[in-house]
């Protein structure tokens, strides 16, 4: 499903200082696998997720998703790929606070040519999967941290993405909500999604459905 070969990423800041965020990363993820990417903050987890989501290009190396090299895609095609294949679970900060829960799913839907009815159906399905259906009309700013995170998940899966990428999903959650999140991951796995979770939260050790664990330290896999 996802295959990385010798992926490097070098950032150059304004003073021409180079910083190597990823060093020679090679990994392979099969369909319906749940993979944990462990690492402290600044270890390059987010960069790796961005590269897989084609939000960023590696400095060198090969990234294949579903047999296609996504590295050479233009922004137009990269976005289309992201829209159709990737569900990106960001931190709960990335929600539009003044809109309601269901309105927050719109950005993922309005680019497709959907009728009102189809849109409503998709929203309903995603919200019920993420177990936030009962708060559909509520403003995001009034939600608790856990509810916000579920809203993010609903947004990530509303387009029936096959691959779900999670970037520090439990960073702002308490223990109870984190455990609830693990349950949701289990559900996604049952829906035959491919899941990649980048985290430094030890709570994921309790997650039973994990197939593989990678440790990322200082930009290289251990």
């Amino acid at each position: 499903m996802i295959q990385l070969q010798n992926v490097n990423k070098v950032f150059t800041d304004t003073n021409h200082n180079n910083f190597q965020a990823l060093k020679d990363i090679s990994l392979a993820i099969s369909p319906n696998e749940c993979v944990l990417l462990h690492g402290s903050s600044g270890s390059g987890k987010t960069t790796l997720l961005h590269i897989i989501a084609s939000l960023m290009k590696p400095s060198s190396g090969l990234v294949e998703v579903k047999g296609e090299n996504i590295v050479s895609l233009s922004d137009y095609h990269a976005s289309a790929y992201r829209r159709s294949t990737i569900g990106y679970v960001t931190q709960s900060f990335y929600l539009l606070d003044n809109l309601s829960v269901e309105e927050n799913l719109l950005p993922a839907l309005v680019l497709e040519s959907l009728s009102e009815k189809e849109m409503a159906q998709k929203i309903k399905k995603a919200l019920s999967l993420a177990n936030i259906e009962h708060k559909a009309k509520q403003k995001v700013s009034t939600l608790s941290g856990g509810e916000k995170q579920r809203c993010i998940i609903a947004r990530a899966i509303v387009n029936d993405a096959e691959i779900v990428l999670c970037d520090e999903p439990t960073a702002n959650l308490d223990k109870k909500n984190s455990l609830f999140f693990l349950g949701l991951i289990q559900n996604l796995k049952n829906l035959r999604k491919t899941i990649l979770i980048a985290t430094h939260d030890p709570i994921f050790e309790k997650l039973e459905c994990v197939d593989k664990v990678y440790n990322l330290e200082g930009g290289s896999l251990e």
Partner: peptide
């Protein structure tokens, strides 16, 4: 050229 550069130019 590298893809990263292409991407910069594309932007």
């Amino acid at each position: 050229a590298t893809n990263a550069l292409q991407y910069e130019l594309e932007k």
